[in-house]
Design a protein around this nucleic acid. Sequence first.
DNA 1: AGTTTAATGTTGCCAAGGCAACCATTTTGT
DNA 2: ACAAAATGGTTGCCTTGGCAACATTAAACT
Lengths: 179, 179
Amino acid sequence: MDIMSEQTGKSRGAKAQAQATKGQDPDHGLTLDLDRYVPAFITFIANKLSNSATAFYQRNFGVNVTEWRIMSLLAIEPGIPASRICSVIGFDKGPVSRTLAAMKKRGLIAIRSDPADGRSHSIALTTKGRATHDRVIIAALERERRLLSCLDKQEQELLIVLLRRIHDNLGAVTGPMEP
Amino acid sequence: MDIMSEQTGKSRGAKAQAQATKGQDPDHGLTLDLDRYVPAFITFIANKLSNSATAFYQRNFGVNVTEWRIMSLLAIEPGIPASRICSVIGFDKGPVSRTLAAMKKRGLIAIRSDPADGRSHSIALTTKGRATHDRVIIAALERERRLLSCLDKQEQELLIVLLRRIHDNLGAVTGPMEP
DNA sequence: AGTTTAATGTTGCCAAGGCAACCATTTTGT
DNA sequence: ACAAAATGGTTGCCTTGGCAACATTAAACT
C-alpha cells in the first residue's frame, strides 16, 4: 500500500535516538512515531496530571480530582442538575451520582429536588464547600501556571484554541467507525 | 464552544441565574474559566479518546488500548524490558506486568530473560502479535487523522510541538508543591 | 570479602470510572 | 386518556491502573 511505505519512510527519520539504548532495528513495516502521535501525548499528559492532582488535592484538601472538578463547576453554575455535571466534565452519570452522594454526606454540597420535575435535582455548594473550593482553586491555578510555564503567552493562547477545537471535534473519533 | 446550548433554564426553576453564556458567577469570588482551563480540556479529551479506543480495539481486534500502546512500542523497539515500556507509556509497572503476562498467555509477545541481568527481561512481539499490530495501526492512524481533521497541517504541527513541550515539562507540576 | 543500596518485576489491595439494568418521573404519540 | 418512549438518577458489576510491600538480583560502598 501507498500509505504504508509513505508512513514508514516518514517515521523512520526522526526515530534514531529513541532506540539508542535498547531497541533493535525494527525496520520492517509500519510503526507509530511516538514523538508525533497525538493520542498518546494527550493520554500521557492527562494521566500524569490527574494522578498528581488527586494525590495533591487529597493530601492537602481532602478531595480528589473528580470532586474538585465538580466543585469548580458548581462554583460557576450553582443549582445545576447532575446531568449538567456529566456533560461538562465528560463523566458517566454513575460515578457522578456516587461522588455527589459522598460530597453531600461530607457537607460540601446541598441537593434539593426540583419541585417542577420530580426526577431532577438542584445541586449547589454549601458554605463549607465554597470555602474548600476557594482554597483548592489557588492550588489548581498554580498547577496550571506551572504546567504552561514552558510556553509563552501567545503559545498558551494557541494551545487553548487548538485544544478547544479538538474537544469540539471529538465526535469525529468517538462516533461510529469501520475497521 | 459552550455545551450549554441546550435547554438552559430547564431545571433551574424560577431562580435560574442565567449565567448561560460564559459561566462567570458574579455573586462570588474566583472561579475557573472552563473554556480556558487546560488541565480540564486535556483530561476530558484523553478520557474520551481512551474509552472510545478501548471499546473499538476490543471489539475489532481483541485488544484494549493499553495492550495496543505496548504493542505499538514493541513494534518500534523490539527487545526492550518492561521498565522501558513503563517509562514510555507512563504507566505503573504493576499494570504493565499484568498486561504483559496476559499478552504472553495469548501469544502476542515473547518474553525471554536477559542472560546478562537476572532481573531484566527482553520483550518482543511474536509473529501473531506483529500481525495484530499491523491491523490495529491502520485503525489507530485513521482515528488520529479524524481527531486532527479539524486542524490544518500547520496547526497540527503546532499542536504536536506544544504538546511535546508540555509533556517534557510535566515534572514542573507532578513534582513537589506547597499549598 | 560483606553489607547496604538500588533496580527489576510480581502481587495484593484499592480508588476511579464506564456500562448496563433498573426505578421513578415526565413527555409524547395516537 | 393511556400506552410508549424519553429523561434523570441510582445501583451492581466490571476493567483500568496507581501505590505499596515484597522477592530477587545487581551495583556500591565500605
